[in-house]
């Protein structure tokens, strides 16, 4: 439908998503997936405050289990938090520093790992000797992992922090094996981006106004389009989460959402829709972007699916 009417397609989480995507488009990365981390990682660095609260099952399923198909005894796994006190208390080591300085901290770690001398004696409140020890520990890991949630790096140009993390990982793959683990996947953000990529060749924030796809990572973000008034209607879809309401704007808004959605300011049009994986089948990409999960229909619903509703709208146009 977006193709036919010349709309721009974005996702409610794409500001966070684009922090990873912009790095992929600029320098790429070395990453891993859940089962590898669970079975192999002998060192895990968790970046930001919320990796364990935003993704509660992540620690429970991937970090805590220490049985490995590759070692005879239990795996010895060091876990370090870097960036902020985790929201959920942990017994692991915590290196506290402001999120805004994380890129610089990873830059210093890159120098320490590669033995490039620096004059600085501390960075972001962290003593150089503490970081030197951390760098040494990372170098001696057999399979190390750095996990981050792009949503946690919630400041302008957060992609530069991700790029610094990925640079460190690439450096560490000279002497040993290391991989990143980007955490995301909420509200089908990874799913939407995957489908946009394969169908059009371009990620979210692609517009069709010109009759050909046009990608603009900066100007085609929803917030910027609304603020600049370069969009004159907003179609907001939230079939999973009734709490994800459209942003405040004076642009006419149509919402396809869960029937339990409650609005402070009612949209121009509200079409209640069924929930994927409850009322109809579908697919959903997990956080690591590799495993697609099949969502099955569990019960009937009188409501249309998002696809049904969009098809009907498209036909009526």
């Amino acid at each position: 439908m977006a193709d036919r009417i010349g709309a721009i397609v974005d996702h409610m989480n794409s500001t966070a998503l684009s922090r990873n995507l912009l790095v992929l488009q600029d320098s790429g990365w070395i990453v891993s997936t859940f089962a590898e981390v669970r079975s192999r990682a002998d060192f895990v660095l968790l970046v930001g405050a919320e990796t364990n609260s935003r993704f509660p099952r992540f620690a429970e399923r991937l970090i805590d289990p220490l049985d490995s198909p590759f070692s005879d005894g239990p795996l010895r796994r060091s876990v370090v938090y870097l960036g902020a006190q985790p929201k959920v208390p942990t017994s692991a080591r915590v290196l506290d520093c402001p999120t805004a300085r994380l890129g610089e901290v990873f830059g210093v770690l890159r120098c320490l790992v590669a033995n490039r001398p620096l004059q600085a004696s501390q960075v972001a409140g962290l003593d150089m000797e503490v970081l030197r020890a951390l760098a040494a520990e990372m170098r001696s890991a057999r399979y190390g992992v750095v996990a981050w949630a792009a949503a946690d790096l919630d400041l302008p140009h957060g992609e530069l922090i991700v790029q610094s993390i990925c640079g460190l990982i690439a450096d560490l793959n000279e002497p040993t094996r290391f991989a990143g683990l980007p955490l995301g996947g909420n509200d089908a953000d990874v799913t939407a981006n995957q489908v946009a990529l394969w169908q059009t060749g371009l990620p979210l924030r692609t517009g069709f106004g010109r009759g050909v796809p046009e990608y603009d990572a900066y100007h085609f973000g929803t917030d910027r389009l609304l603020a600049s008034r370069n969009a004159d209607v907003l179609l907001w879809i939230s079939a999973f989460d009734p709490l994800r309401l459209p942003p405040e704007s004076d642009v006419p808004t149509i919402v396809l959402g869960s029937p339990t959605m409650r609005f402070a300011k009612p949209p121009a049009v509200f079409i209640p829709v069924a929930t994927p994986g409850l009322h109809h089948a579908g697919h959903f990409f997990r956080s690591d972007g590799v495993m697609a999960i099949r969502l099955r229909k569990l019960t009937d619903s009188p409501l249309p699916s998002v696809a049904d509703a969009l098809t009907a709208i498209d036909q009526a146009l």
Partner: peptide, 29 residues
């Protein structure tokens, strides 16, 4: 595809009555 937006920008397929707007070249849609 994700890696190469610049390659895609250079090979755009326009929408027609039958086909959708998309991109080609090295890793086509």
């Amino acid at each position: 595809r994700a890696l190469l937006p610049e390659d895609h920008r250079a090979d755009l397929l326009a929408r027609t009555e039958l086909t959708r707007a998309c991109c080609g070249h090295a890793a086509p849609s």
